[in-house]
C-alpha cells in the first residue's frame, strides 16, 4: 500500500483529523458522549491507519514498542495513583473530594479528567501494542516461510 498515491495523500489528510477527534472525545467527554475508552481506541486507530499505509517500521519510529508498554503501565498507574491520593489526603480509595479541599465539585471534575486520561492512555497504548505484536509476528512468519522456500 506504500506506493498508492491516493491512499498516502488521503491518509496524511485524515490522520490529524482522527487524532483531533480523539482528543475532543477525550476532553469533551464530560459534556458530550465520550470518554477515555473511546478516545484511546480512536487515537490508536489513527496510528494503525498510519501503520497500514506506511508500514510497521515507520509507525514504530513514531511510537516504539517499548513506549507502548511504558504508556500502557503509566495509564493504569495514573488511575490507581489518583485513587491512592484520595486515601492519602484523608478520604477513601478513589474518592475525589479530598483532592481540592473546599471545592467538592472542582475536585470531582479534576478527578474525573485525570482518571479518564489514565483510561485513554492505557487503552490507546494496549490497542497499539496488540496490533504491533500481531503485525510483527506476521512478519516473522513470512520470513520463516521465505527461508524455507530458499
Amino acid at each position: 500500500m506504500k506506493t498508492n498515491g491516493i491512499l498516502r495523500v488521503v491518509t496524511r489528510f485524515l490522520i490529524p483529523l482522527i487524532m483531533l477527534f480523539a482528543l475532543y472525545i477525550q476532553f469533551h467527554g464530560e459534556y458530550s458522549p465520550g470518554g477515555g475508552f473511546q478516545a484511546g481506541v480512536i487515537f490508536a486507530a489513527a496510528w494503525i491507519l498510519f501503520a497500514l499505509v506506511f508500514g510497521l517500521d515507520e509507525a514504530l519510529a513514531v511510537v516504539p514498542a517499548g513506549a507502548q508498554k511504558v504508556l500502557a503501565s503509566i495509564g493504569v498507574m495514573l488511575y490507581a495513583t489518583i485513587g491512592v491520593l484520595g486515601v492519602v489526603l484523608g478520604g477513601q480509595f478513589l474518592e475525589f473530594t479530598p483532592l481540592i479541599p473546599g471545592s467538592p465539585q472542582g475536585a470531582q471534575q479534576a478527578g474525573i479528567v485525570l482518571v479518564e486520561l489514565g483510561v485513554g492512555i492505557t487503552v490507546a497504548a494496549v490497542v497499539m501494542l496488540i496490533y504491533t505484536l500481531f503485525a510483527d509476528r506476521l512478519r516473522v512468519v513470512a520470513d520463516l516461510t521465505r527461508e524455507e522456500i530458499d
Binding site: 467527554g29 464530560e30 459534556y31 458530550s32 458522549p33 465520550g34 470518554g35 467538592p104 465539585q105 472542582g106 470531582q108 471534575q109 474525573i112 479518564e116
Partner: peptide, 10 residues
C-alpha cells in the same frame, strides 16, 4: 454533586 452534564461520565 459533580457539576458536569454527562451523567454517564459521572
Amino acid at each position: 454533586d459533580i457539576g458536569i452534564p454527562n451523567v454517564v461520565a459521572s
